[in-house]
Nucleic acid binder design. Sequence first.
DNA 1: TATACCCGGGACATAAAACGTCCATCATTT
DNA 2: AAATGATGGACGTTTTATGTCCCGGGTATA
Lengths: 345, 345
Amino acid sequence: MSVVIMREILDIQKQLLPDLMDVMKKRYSILQHILVSGVVGRRTLASSLDMTERVLRGEVDFLKEQGLLETDASGMKISESGRRLLEAMEPIIKMAFGLTDLEESIRKAFQISQVIVVPGDSDTSTFAKKELGRAGAAALRKYVSKDDIIAVTGGSTMAQIANNLAISSKMKGSWFVPARGGLGESVDMQANTIASIMAKKTGGKYRLLHVPDHLGEEAYQSLIQDPQIQEVVNAVRSCRIVVHGIGDAMVMARRRKVDAETTRTLQADGALAEAFGYYFDRQGNVVHKMPTVGLRLEDLQRVEVVIGVAGGKSKGEAIASVLRHGQEDVLVTDEAAALEIMKHV
Amino acid sequence: MSVVIMREILDIQKQLLPDLMDVMKKRYSILQHILVSGVVGRRTLASSLDMTERVLRGEVDFLKEQGLLETDASGMKISESGRRLLEAMEPIIKMAFGLTDLEESIRKAFQISQVIVVPGDSDTSTFAKKELGRAGAAALRKYVSKDDIIAVTGGSTMAQIANNLAISSKMKGSWFVPARGGLGESVDMQANTIASIMAKKTGGKYRLLHVPDHLGEEAYQSLIQDPQIQEVVNAVRSCRIVVHGIGDAMVMARRRKVDAETTRTLQADGALAEAFGYYFDRQGNVVHKMPTVGLRLEDLQRVEVVIGVAGGKSKGEAIASVLRHGQEDVLVTDEAAALEIMKHV
DNA sequence: TATACCCGGGACATAAAACGTCCATCATTT
DNA sequence: AAATGATGGACGTTTTATGTCCCGGGTATA
């Protein structure tokens, strides 16, 4: 309960002071180290905290000024009010940096440039799901630049991201396009719908790609010859940013009404995860792809920013599979999924 | 409930990140101004916020980066998420800086160098009383320098300050002395007791001044001839710092068992407040002084730092009287008293 | 339609802060 | 008594923040 309020306050403040947490953690861990060390010297402490001597000295001077620690010729030690402060801070730090540590572990394990973990479990909490959307939207805004082409997929998570986008001069010139052709999902979670919502919310532009599923080969061939469609497909393939959800393979297969034959194949091949129309096994190998047009796996190589967004304990393993494939640049997930992911490193 | 948590977090942050809190306030008020202005230009805003154009620009660039405001050729305006943030931050800012504003008003109204206001009402909350002690101790620590002589008075607030002092190399060479001779108060709140506690807590030294009340003139004269006593009195009069409580005149008179005759005089003269043995009326004039040795009013002129500490709604008017006398350099009080004080400007 | 005004943003020299590095001096321990 | 390890001062260098000016472009007004 109080944790929620705490987190809320910090989240609000982080918008105005993004480096708030960094500074807080730095100063906290200095005090913390001094507390456990009893009396300690500047150089010793600097190396144990992996800081240069000079910058540690700056912080120590500050902390001394605040009366949180004391120095004498034998070294530094924590003061009474410093000890009290540390005690009061513990829950805050633990809450705020439990997730940060998770982020860091995942980032290192899969060699991703950024990982964002929001609190909670999207499977059971709609609040967590909304948070995921907010964080996803923030991540997208961070990476977008003038006049980008942004390819997006469908799904409830992506819909949540669209929900949390706001008008922004940065995205005014951007194009939103669906990463792949039509899916058998409900309309308001289709990639097409989401691309258009995102464009409307941000003030950007959009192009749609309506390619029905289960098309016969000849109808398919003539469709992709269509100049209109080709134009969109080319735009999709030359996108700079991809934002996509990640799903459980079997769940997605069912939702897309994949025929029994294919489902069996998927199962036999150990398909675990689905993302932008591709199915992945535990090792991150592609075992199947959805028969439609749009972004191909080989295009991903050239895409500058691939942002995967998915949460919920049940998706943890699927997310790990996709990460293992090694094309992701940014992962946005929730606490429950993150913990699952770490079980599969 | 949540208010308590919020205050706790902010309190921690104020200790650990005072500089960032200022930045937070700055950015908040920029957004705030833009909100009420609708669309506004950089230069206009800069002058209205009393900032230079360049530094405002830096902040605006940051806020734009965060997606909190938008700019076009006609000027800047707040974005949707900016508006939401502003709304969410209002209670935080109010809590974090409401007291700061009070401090500033009192500081200006009475021309004091520093005012510190802690939350709450010492009359009704022991927590507020403790806070007052903590803040008083912090103020003393701030102003003390090597080998100072510090004169202190008695009273429960001063006892609370003594409680919150901690060993400190800064105060190791300091002398603590009682500002005036003995009072008819209970032993553990007498100036003598408090001076000795403070010395013990900080690692400093102390001298006591035992001059019984209601001494006959001849006994008094012979007492103040005593070299031991003279030495202490001289120390007191040459002190660099004074820390004193402030009381309601009538309450103090009763507590000191002042005789009925004097009490009537006090009432007739409009005595409202008492501090270091002097009684003040509403205009800050001295209407009576306690017959004992020690710090005289004329010594105060020379004293470099006079720190007054008192809180509680009931003491507001008394504090205002003493402030009006115009010898205070630092005031430490609580929210309830501060609000009362502001009614008497 | 012409004009005067205010806008954001680019540019750049300069002031200020942060930082890396070295050293003098002091207390404590061996 | 020497050696170790501590703080705090000093100083040159690098990075950041700031003051200032100007430009091209919208906008409201005459």
